[in-house]
Amino acid sequence: MRDRWNRVVQDEWVDGLEQSCWAQMPEELLREVLIRIEASDTTWPSRKNVVACAGVCKSWRRITQELVKSPEVSASLTFPISVKQPGPRESLLKCFIKRNRSAQTYYLYLSLTNALTEDGKFLLAARKWRRATCTDYIISLHADDMSKGSSTYIGKLRSNFLGTKFTVYDGQPPHSGAKIMRNRSTRLVGLKQVSPRVPAGSYPVAHISYEVNVLGSRGPRRMQCSMDSIPASAIEPGGVTPTQTEIRISNPDVFPSSSFFRLKSHRVENSLSEPLADKKDGALVLKNKAPRWHEQLQCWCLNFHGRVTVASVKNFQLVASPEDGTAGQQHDKIILQFGKVGKDLFTMDYRYPISAFQAFAICLSSFDTKIACE
């Protein structure tokens, strides 16, 4: 009798909710409201808020499912896992980096407006650690906890002594065939782990090299990025790239929404199951777009379409390098651009097939001192 009564009450409550003013809101208006709320949020949404929106009624659930998609499709960064997933295919995702010189820290934000302002949603943070023979940039999901033993550690950038070669390491495997790079620091981090769910190794996902250019005698900087975890065919029409679907952290309370976002795309699952080494084509190679000399200004120039306002040796634009030497239309698209707009403020715009994490790591290499390149 009690179960029957509960079912009656529940059915009446659901019917009342379906007929409420919120459920009767036009879908176009509801979609616009939810998009604006998501875009204006300066922090990651908690899982309970997302579930609450999806649980109002069928129309709310359908629209919430439409909004919660990968950056490649939605062109937005909703959950922490989004920073590990490729950016949008058709446009550049606009971000900016704040630098703290005294603390040697760097903060990545998602731009909430088209204006070159300091208002944005926090994405990633990095701290510079100098060593005897190299320099490490520890990248974290937390703005105040940037250590490799932290539960929010997701990767690092390591340079050689001269600052001409860099390696980007991911804290977890980018695809099923990724090989772990084990060393003494890796073993020490493993001892500090709170949970075995956190990967104890470093997986190399990209190599960055700067051409030796003592005193700038060869003109502007020349850089090349070999994206070990991205196949060269990714930039072709219909091309795919391995996509991570979750961030493994030892303390789920830090990001309660991190486990909510799961990609169900069959295409993505196929790309994850196949190691890059087994693919027919090689890794994607990015190179900086050559600037042109401006006679009137007497300087090297690149067209950043208003996103860069201060001349700097750090400014660059990356495009895909053709494998066979024949450049197609896809090789003209700017995949990553980085430039200075203030004393310690820089813009960072990226697109598919690289992620915000990879783009941030590449930009960090531009900050590092280069003895043999300047």
Rank of each mutant, 00 (worst) to 15 (best):
N288H: 11
P237H: 08
E90M: 11
E72R: 07
E66W: 06
M181S: 11
Q19P: 04
L30W: 05
E274F: 07
R2W: 05
P26S: 02
R99F: 03
C21P: 01
G306M: 07
P353M: 03
K314F: 05
F360T: 07
A115T: 01
G190K: 05
K165Q: 12
G87W: 03
E90D: 15
A311Y: 11
I335C: 02
I35N: 07
L297C: 00
E66K: 08
E27V: 14
P231N: 06
L302W: 12
S59D: 11
R31N: 12
Y350M: 10
N288R: 04
V313I: 06
A356M: 02
Y350V: 02
N160V: 04
V83A: 00
A283D: 14
I247S: 04
K289L: 15
F304H: 03
T167S: 14
K94M: 09
N183R: 13
R351W: 00
G177D: 07
L34Y: 05
V212S: 15
D145W: 15
K192R: 11
C363N: 01
I247G: 02
K98L: 15
G325P: 11
G163Y: 02
R158P: 01
L93P: 05
G201P: 07
D349H: 14
C134P: 00
A283W: 05
K314D: 08
L297F: 11
K128C: 14
L92E: 11
P71H: 03
P80G: 06
V189Y: 02
S259N: 14
R36G: 03
T117P: 01
S259Q: 12
S259W: 09
C134G: 02
V212N: 13
A356V: 03
Y153T: 04
I180C: 13
A200R: 06
S102D: 15
F161Y: 15
L92M: 14
R7W: 09
V254A: 06
S59F: 00
S202T: 00
S366N: 12
Q104D: 14
L108F: 06
P196K: 10
P353L: 01
C53M: 08
R351D: 04
N288Q: 09
N288W: 00
K343D: 14
S151K: 00
I334D: 01
S159A: 10
R307A: 15
A234C: 12
T105L: 07
R307F: 08
V214Y: 13
M25S: 06
F260C: 13
D170V: 05
I154H: 08
W13A: 15
E32T: 09
A125N: 00
N6K: 10
H266V: 10
Y350S: 09
G306R: 05
V73S: 09
I138S: 04
S271R: 05
S74T: 08
A232Y: 10
T78H: 08
E236V: 01
L108R: 00
V313S: 13
L286A: 05
R2C: 05
I139W: 02
A327R: 14
S147M: 08
W13Y: 06
R62H: 14
Q10V: 02
I230K: 08
L284Y: 00
E38H: 04
T309E: 07
R47D: 09
E66C: 07
S366G: 09
L116T: 04
D228K: 13
W22S: 02
E211C: 10
K84Y: 08
D15Q: 13
Q224C: 15
Q298Y: 09
